[in-house]
Amino acid sequence: MKYRATPGSVAFNVFLYGFMLLVGIATIYPFLNLLAISFNDSLDTVRGGIYVWPRMFTWNNYEQIFRYNDLLTAFKNSVLRTVLGTFLGILSGSMLAYVLSRKDFIARKPVSLFFVLTLYFSGGLIPVYMLMRDLSLINSFWVYILPGIVNAWNVFVIRSYMDGLPISLQESAKLDGASDLTIFFRIILPLCKPVLATIGLFVAVGQWNSWFDTFLYNSTNSELTTLQYELMKILSDTQAGDSSQARLGSSEFASQVSPESIRASITMVATLPILVVYPFLQRYFVKGLTLGAVKS
């Protein structure tokens, strides 16, 4: 399409590109700034003036934070819950989606309703807390995994994808004597890779980013801490007046690294894994999101 360059359209273009550039900068600048600080010499950072490029490059900040034992434990727990949670989330989501996509399944209606209802209510914070207590899930790693294995929304997104697959594949496999289990694992699952990549990304991001369950259930056990929770503790200490010096000084951090550098490098450790992955999955999740919204 060609446009005539009237003064109005020129002005609009200037506004449009200027605005988009501003949005882009406002979004990405804070991350570049933290990245630069995390790689800049700590003493030098205190002098200020670090924007998007480190002035005195160093790995020291990262070396320091990984000397701190709680952070290593936190990193391990975050990775473990992300891997396990994502695997189980995809498995449960795709299995349930397959079962609910089978129009001949005799318990389809009640099972479907059973999951739909969970979208509309929740027991609330305290009943859930009491339940976790009764199930001895407090002070346990499993509180990160078990409650979130099934997510009804994910099930319905995957199901609507499966509904779009040609039924003839299933029928011919059935005639060849394949069981439902074989059909699911051998035929359906491989065809669902795009939607499973999307859901997998959502579940992984949710697991990696969550801090509240650690805060609520496992805050007294440093063996079960997670990366986001450690970061949250450090950030909230800074906010409540500058007592961070005291806290960080008394911990295992060497005094040569300033709180600002520590915050920046932990933030990067907590953020980079996702930032590296999501652009590659972009075309999948755009589709997955559209699918979900159309269905719901």
Partner: peptide, 27 residues
């Protein structure tokens, strides 16, 4: 005949019952 379909859904039905429905009792 549909035993695998039941097998594939019942464990998750149980999980959802415990973690989504049981808290309602707490009301």
């Amino acid at each position: 005949e549909q035993r695998y379909l039941f097998l594939m859904s019942l464990p998750f039905v149980a999980l959802v019952f415990v973690f989504n429905y049981l808290p309602l009792w707490g009301w």
